[in-house]
Write a protein that binds this DNA or RNA. Structure first.
Lengths: 224, 224
DNA sequence: CTAAAAACTTGCAATAGATGCAAAATTATA
DNA sequence: TATAATTTTGCATCTATTGCAAGTTTTTAG
């Protein structure tokens, strides 16, 4: 039931190639229209027309209008999963998370087109898209937690969730801060690095948050 | 322009009281229907009928069907803001956040009806509601960041965002973990306490995350 | 107390996202 | 090439959401 006699060799059949192309076409058309006219102002009908498919077909590729905005992200997530699997032994889990996150940010920055910029703009403007993005981030967080548990079988399940939640939450905050303040990629990298340092060393390591006004650079006197 | 001659004394005018009642009626009807038939299965028309208002009126009280689920939360948020303002001097910002969060969780647990349970169930089932909840949490995070900056004028703006993001992210993870694992309120409190401790001391303080397998309870050898 | 003003409710119509279904078209298999 | 499997499409439908204008209720002014 699965041997192909004559042609149709290589990676995949015509059917799959076509689907991939259609998916790309829809996503590209959508992003272009969103950038030109705005999200609300572009209807599914518009997108379908621009992608040269029937309106009904849109929903067999994306479950909702919001999801098409994140089409590229889904592709990128596959890379992240791969990178996490190719983890060099000897690296601590925290270091791995740091490395993968930074690499992913670079990959996103190097994206073709201005998709990243369009996505960012849309997300900051449309609450519905922001909500969707946050939910995707949460899903990713869940997956990361699973993986962390795989890497550290001894870690408490709840602790793993907290570690990942705090890390993702802190990085998210740093990224959003940079986005809303128009930071350059280099500055973003620095901010991410600093955020990770704060979280590894403990929030109490920031002297301004403690009661001792003249504590040295190390803050070991905070109560638990 | 504002002196009331005879009756209508007390806290507010008839108009305001009526609006509060209507809002409550709509929210109560909605939550009841959602619990009985489910979220998707209850239409705006159903809710309006149950609350004895016109369907059109629903939208002058709640911007969307999703928002009605969080009606109670909005009321609770006012309390949180108050509590944050009544902060005793001498308490560190981190301790304040801890205290307020724990108090709020208690208040939520002591809620009337089973609204909290219904909300939780709905949020875990309906992605749209989860997304909305996450977005609300993000908004709260932004507000918390503002307040933290007010409390610590010397803190770097980006650092403040990171601290709040990590804290909220870690607590969120702990809460969700407890929710999805059917924890009792007491266990939830313990989990929140532990989560806060981890974040204050630094993620690197968890020995399982470092490379030194036999490090003591203090982990000071982690690199930044 | 009464009339005008202000705020709220309601009904009606319209837009657009989303879904189910069955016919039509396309690709894969033998 | 005939047949099976999959995909695309058109159509009907449901429902959330919004704008608008008319109808009610509450407030304010006299």
């Amino acid at each position: 039931m699965r041997d192909m006699h004559h042609g149709a060799a290589g990676s995949s059949g015509l059917r799959e190639r076509k689907k991939r192309r259609t998916r790309q076409a829809i996503a590209a058309a959508a992003l272009r229209l969103f950038a030109e006219r705005g999200f609300e102002e572009s209807t599914i009908a518009d997108i379908a027309a621009a992608a040269d498919v029937a309106p009904r077909t849109f929903f067999s590729y994306f479950p909702s209008k919001e999801d098409v905005v994140f089409a590229e992200i889904d592709d990128r997530l596959a890379d992240v999963r791969e990178r996490l699997d190719r983890r060099p032994t000897g690296e601590t889990p925290l270091t791995t998370m740091r490395r993968v996150v930074l690499e992913t940010m670079e990959a996103l920055a190097a994206e073709q087109g201005d998709y990243a910029a369009i996505r960012t703009k849309l997300m900051l403007e449309r609450p519905a898209l922001q909500a969707r993005a946050l939910q995707r981030l949460y899903d990713a967080e869940q997956e990361l937690t699973e993986r962390l548990r795989g890497l550290c079988p001894d870690i408490d399940a709840s602790d793993a969730a907290v570690v990942v939640g705090a890390t993702v939450g802190g990085l998210k905050a740093a990224i959003m801060y940079c986005r809303t303040h128009g930071y350059e990629p280099a500055e973003l990298n620095a901010a991410l690095d600093r955020a990770l340092a704060i979280m590894e060393d403990g929030l109490a390591s920031l002297p301004v948050l403690t009661n001792a006004p003249d504590a040295g650079p190390e803050g070991t006197e905070t109560t638990a």
